[in-house]
């Protein structure tokens, strides 16, 4: 069964790109969220196998959202989408419970490699 993914990013552009990458890797994107608030809600509602999480977002940052998601489900797999130069933020997210991270701009194969690794499929 295809793994179910929640994609969180405030840019539709990024969400679409990430969605296409997941689709190409045989994943099922079951939901999207455009900010941290929505991310936590969607996570609780959808219980995805994996969540990709942008860091800089309105209303609630990706770090805060990750913290809340992990609080709700300590086995949640959250992968941060960061940019170069955000190293300290990513470390903060890892402290908050993020499983791994990918760095923008990313290539499809890099994303899928990390995701499969994290899910134990590679």
């Amino acid at each position: 069964m295809a793994k179910r993914v929640l994609v969180v990013d405030d840019a539709i552009f990024m969400r679409n790109m990430i969605k296409d990458i997941f689709a190409s890797g045989g994943f099922e994107v079951v939901g999207e969220a455009a900010n941290g608030l929505e991310a936590v809600e969607k996570f609780k509602e959808l219980k995805p196998d994996l969540t990709t999480m942008d860091i800089v977002m309105p209303f609630k940052s990706g770090i805060e959202a990750t913290r809340e998601i992990i609080k709700a489900d300590s086995s949640a797999v959250v992968i941060m989408c960061s940019a170069l130069g955000q190293e300290s933020l990513v470390m903060e997210a890892i402290e908050a419970g993020a499983s791994d991270f990918i760095v923008k701009p990313f290539r499809a194969e890099d994303v899928l490699a990390v995701v499969k690794k994290v899910l134990g499929e590679a």
Binding site: D20, S24, G25, A108, E109, L112, A113, K116, A122
Partner: peptide, 13 residues
């Protein structure tokens, strides 16, 4: 491109 990508990442493993 999608299929190729998957293949690539598995091959890397």
């Amino acid at each position: 491109s999608g299929a190729g990508t998957t293949e690539g990442s598995e091959a890397s493993g």
